[in-house]
């Protein structure tokens, strides 16, 4: 089948403004990933089309982009799951500066992630010759949040991010949850202090966009609400 796409283009060396370019891509099949279509365009239609990608199966988190208004990973979206009778509209992730075409500047996203101290903080030395003891039940409580691939689909889908570029965002909070709830960690209070700031957790208004945007189907809002509960009970 043939499909129509509208892709936002921007090359700062020659364009003053981003603009949409139309592509009519021939002989695609509905079991193709959207990423395969982008490769087809780059290989056979227009070598200048620029996007990030690496693993191509939803683990590395490189190819987040806005597809028909929603944040998606191009490699985890099949054509059969898109209405290909209509033009597919592809834009870069919102709320981050565009470097070129679908490539955005991720540096502020990674800075926010570093702010919440994404590593084990502990004052108790571990047992010298074996692992710390943790029940499987406690370990599995971390797995959902540890699934996060840092693709930025959630953070850039959030209206609070759109209106406040300093907002820490759901991805960083999800990572904070992963450490705060680790029975081996002792840095919970430090991190809760970081979240309990003007650009922190209270900017989350449970709009649920993050859940819809997450390609790993993590219930991010639930994790954030657990952190809010922890903060509320701490204050009392």
């Amino acid at each position: 089948m043939d499909i129509q796409l509208k892709i936002l283009r921007f090359n700062p060396e020659k364009d003053k403004q981003p603009y949409f370019q139309d592509f009519n891509v021939k002989n695609v099949s509905d079991d193709w990933r959207l990423l395969d279509v982008l490769h087809e365009i780059k290989g056979n239609y227009d070598g200048t089309l620029t996007f990030r990608r690496s693993c191509a199966h939803g683990i590395c988190g490189s190819d987040g982009m806005k597809v028909n208004g929603k944040n998606k990973l191009a490699c985890a979206l099949l054509l059969k799951d898109i209405n290909t009778k209509k033009t597919i509209v592809i834009e870069p992730l919102p709320a981050l500066p565009i470097i070129k075409d679908l490539v955005v500047d991720m540096s502020s996203f990674f800075m926010k992630y570093e702010v919440i101290k994404p590593y084990l903080i502990t004052n108790t030395p571990p047992p010298p010759n074996h692992e710390r003891i943790q029940s499987n039940e406690d370990a599995e409580k971390l797995f959902e949040s540890a699934k996060c691939i840092l693709c930025a689909c959630c953070t850039t889908s959030c209206p609070s991010t759109w209106t406040n570029e300093n907002y820490i965002g759901p991805a960083a909070m999800l990572r904070a949850y992963r450490y705060i709830n680790d029975t081996r960690d002792e840095g919970g209070d430090e991190r809760l202090d970081i979240l309990d700031t003007p650009d922190g957790i209270w900017r989350c208004h449970t709009i649920f966009n993050c859940i819809e945007a997450c390609p790993k189907e993590i219930n991010i809002t639930w994790h954030i609400s657990q952190l809010k509960k922890k903060l509320s009970s701490r204050e009392m």
């Binding site: 710390r132 029940s135 499987n136 370990a139 599995e140 540890a146 992963r178 450490y179 081996r184």
Partner: peptide, 20 residues
């Protein structure tokens, strides 16, 4: 492997709470 656990890597566990 023990070192990775000490660094914070989350592992599945057995019924004694050791790495599965």
């Amino acid at each position: 492997i023990i070192e990775l656990e000490h660094m914070g890597m989350p592992f599945s566990r057995n019924d004694k709470g050791l790495i599965a």
